[in-house]
Design a protein around this nucleic acid. Structure first.
Length: 257
DNA sequence: ACCCAGGCCATCT
DNA sequence: AGATGGCCTGGG
């Protein structure tokens, strides 16, 4: 089915370090697995073609791509005199914050620590390859011995994955989805291997708490350089995480073009 | 060779 | 509370 979507650029979302399982198929086309489904999406300007029925589009992908949110309005909330933020938004004008599966996002961002985007993609792909290409459930991950995980090249993160598989039962994941941002963040940090930053990434990229503002090495240096008096979070209580994504994407584009 | 990459934990003061 | 070192691994 075809549809028009504004403020959406698949290439930018793919490169923005929030999802790591999209398969680039060339020509702005991607194979996208999520929630046990798989769809291919092609883009031509603001026209998109989804390889699925209208029903599946509305049941799964509309929410996944956060199509109920007007990103034009969010961009307009950024201070006009904030030249850095304006430049970052102009650069990543097609970014959106996906609503991804909580469990997958937890595993993904545990693996992301002290790593880089290509390596995270490889780690996830190798992990899924053990399960016929599907993302392992908590129960499946639990069965993997630490030595097997280490053979995937995840290093010291291996025991963190096992801890997460024990801690994040389906019940815990479902309570995360109902919890407030503060409560969800606190539950997440209760798991060994999940710290403040990873918890914020899960809150933002899965639970869609758009006020969550993950501070990694890139954002930290951005803040030091462009916001010596601190980023005005008080102005952006409900959209700071989205603005963070524009800034992060602007920054990694400059270092890895 | 060396350092760093979207950190976190344990172990100190 | 805050600071520091160690940790797996791959790439520049």
């Amino acid at each position: 089915m075809q549809i028009t979507i504004r403020d959406c650029d698949l290439d930018q979302i793919y490169a923005s370090g929030q999802c790591f399982r999209w398969q680039p198929m060339g020509g702005g086309c991607y194979g996208i697995p999520a929630f046990g489904r798989y769809v291919t999406v092609s883009q031509n300007g603001d026209r998109f073609e989804f390889s699925c029925s209208e029903d599946e589009f509305h049941d799964v992908w509309y929410k996944y791509f956060d199509l109920g949110t007007d990103y034009g309005k969010i961009k307009a909330r950024a201070a006009k005199r904030d030249k850095y933020l304006q430049a970052a938004i102009a650069h990543g004008s097609g970014l959106r914050i996906l609503r991804q599966d909580v469990w997958e996002t937890i595993v993904t961002f545990i693996l992301s620590q002290n790593s880089n985007i290509p390596r995270i993609r490889k780690n996830i792909a190798d992990l899924c390859a053990l399960f016929d290409g599907a993302f392992p459930t908590q129960e499946q991950l639990k069965t993997l011995d630490e030595s097997v995980l280490r053979r995937l090249g995840v290093g010291y993160r291996a025991p963190y994955l096992t801890a997460a598989a024990e801690y994040f039962t389906t019940e815990t994941c479902s309570s995360l989805e109902k919890a407030s941002y503060a409560r969800a963040h606190s539950i997440l940090c209760g798991c060994k291997g999940v710290g403040v930053k990873v918890a914020d990434c899960v809150c933002l990229f899965a639970l869609h708490h758009t006020g969550a503002f993950p501070i990694d090495t890139h954002v930290k240096s951005i803040l030091e350089k462009h916001y010596p008096d601190g980023f005005p979070l008080y102005k952006y209580r409900t959209c700071a995480g989205i603005l963070q994504q524009y800034m992060f994407f602007y920054d990694i584009m400059k270092t890895t073009p």
